[in-house]
Design a protein around this nucleic acid. Structure first.
Lengths: 212, 212
DNA sequence: ATAATTGCTGACCCGTTGGTCAGTAAGGAA
DNA sequence: TTCCTTACTGACCAACGGGTCAGCAATTAT
C-alpha cells in the first residue's frame, strides 16, 4: 500500500501554480526564474504546468491578474461607503492601508511590473484600466468631496491624486533596492508626506493652493 | 586594398561597450539581454567584450557606475554654492533638474536598479553611499538652511527630504510601465507636488508642521 | 623590410531551459 | 472487479547563451 504518487486536483492547480510562480518571480525576476523551479515549488511536474498555462508568458500574466483585482475593489467600495470626513478617511483607513502595502506581497508585483511590464503592453493596459485608474478615481472623488464640503481648498491634488500614493511607491522601491541595509521608516515616511499634503490644502487659509 | 577588418582602439572600447550595454539593458532588462547583442551594438566581437569585462555581471556594474557618478556630484556642488534662497532654489534650479530626470537616460538606471538591484548587494551599497546619500544630504542641508533663515518652519521634511524626490521617481516608474499610453504630465506633476510641500512648510503660519 | 607585440575575431563548447509527448495511474462509472 | 476517462508524470529534444581560446591581423619596434 504505497501512498499514491499524486492526487488529481484539477480545481486547485491553477491557484497553486500561480502562487508558486509569484514566489519564484519575486525572488529572481521573470527571465531568471526557471519554469521547472515554479513547478517544483507547486509540487507539480513541469508537464502539468504546461497543461494549464500555454507558455511561460501566459503564466506571468495570470499571476499578475490573480493577485491584484481583489485588493483594489475592496478599497474602492470602502471609500464610497464611508461615513468619515475626507480628512478623517485619509488620516485613518487610507493611511492604515497605505502603510501596509510596502510590507505586503503587493510590493512584489510592483517590481514585476517595473522590470517586465514594458514587454507586455496588453498586460499593463489591463492593469491600468482595472487597477490604477479605479484607485485614482476613488481617491479623486474623496478629495472632491472634501472640497465640496469645505474641508479642503481647491488644489492640484484634485488633478493629481497620485501625490498621495507617491510615498508608498517610494517606500516599496526603496526596500526593493536597498532591503533593510539603508533603513527608511516607511510608516513614518508615508504618514509624514500625507500629513504635509493635507496641511497644504486645508481650507483655513485664504487663497487657492497649487493651481498655478 | 580592402579596408581593415577592425581597428585597434584600446582606449575607447570600455566606454563604447558600456554605452551599448546601457542601451541593450534598457530595452530588455539584464537577464534577457544577450551578451552577443551588446557586442554587436558596440560593433565588436563577443570575445573582445570578455577581454574588458570578466563576466556579464561585471559589465552590469560597470554600466551603472559609469553613468551615475557625474550627475550627482554636479547637483551637490551647485546646491552648496548657490546664492538663491532655499525656496528660490527649489522652485528654480532644483525643479528644472527634477523635471528633466524622467526624460533622461537616468530613468533607465532606475529600472535596472529595481529589477536587478536585489541580486547585487555590493552594487546597491555602492549606489547608496555614492549617489543616494549624497543627494539626500544636499537636499537636507538646503532645507535646514531655509529653516535657519526663517523661510521654512520646522517640519518632517528635515527628516525626510526624500519627499521632494518622490514625484520624480513616480513619474519615472509611470513612464516605464505605461509608456505614453496613459499620459501623466510629469512636468506639471512634479511641479505641483513640490509646490504643495513648500506651501505646507512656509513660515507664515504659527505652529510647527508635521513633527507629530 | 622584418619581427615582435597585442588588440581583436569568431567558431566552438557545454550546461541550461522552454517546451513536447508517450505513457502512467488516480478516480469514477457500470 | 473491470473498464474508461483524463489528470498527471518525467524523460527527452532542440535551441540558446555565457564563456573560452587558438589563431589572425593592425600597429609598433628594430
Amino acid at each position: 500500500m504505497a501512498k499514491p504518487r499524486f492526487r488529481r486536483r484539477k480545481e486547485d492547480r491553477p491557484q497553486e501554480i500561480t502562487a508558486a510562480a509569484l514566489e519564484a518571480f519575486a525572488e529572481k525576476g521573470y527571465s531568471a526564474t526557471r519554469v521547472t523551479d515554479v513547478a517544483k515549488r507547486a509540487g507539480v511536474s513541469k508537464g502539468l504546468l504546461y497543461l494549464y498555462f500555454k507558455t511561460k508568458e501566459e503564466l506571468f500574466k495570470a499571476v499578475v491578474k490573480s493577485f491584484v483585482s481583489p485588493r483594489i475593489d475592496a478599497l474602492k467600495a470602502e471609500i464610497e461607503s464611508t461615513e468619515l470626513t475626507a480628512e478623517g478617511y485619509f488620516r485613518g483607513p487610507f493611511l492604515a492601508f497605505a502603510k501596509q502595502v510596502p510590507k505586503s506581497p503587493a510590493r512584489i508585483l510592483v517590481r514585476l511590473m517595473i522590470a517586465e511590464g514594458a514587454k507586455h503592453p496588453d498586460l499593463t493596459d489591463w492593469y491600468h484600466r482595472n487597477v490604477v485608474s479605479h484607485g485614482l478615481a476613488a481617491l479623486r472623488s474623496l478629495i472632491e468631496r472634501g472640497v465640496r464640503d469645505g474641508e479642503f481648498r481647491k488644489s492640484a491634488l484634485q488633478e493629481f491624486p497620485h501625490m498621495v500614493v507617491t510615498p508608498v511607491l517610494f517606500a516599496i522601491v526603496w526596500s526593493l533596492v536597498f532591503g533593510d541595509r539603508a533603513g527608511l521608516n516607511s510608516d513614518r515616511f508615508i504618514e509624514a508626506q500625507v500629513d504635509l499634503l493635507l496641511r497644504a490644502i486645508q481650507a483655513d487659509g485664504t487663497d487657492e493652493a497649487g493651481t498655478s
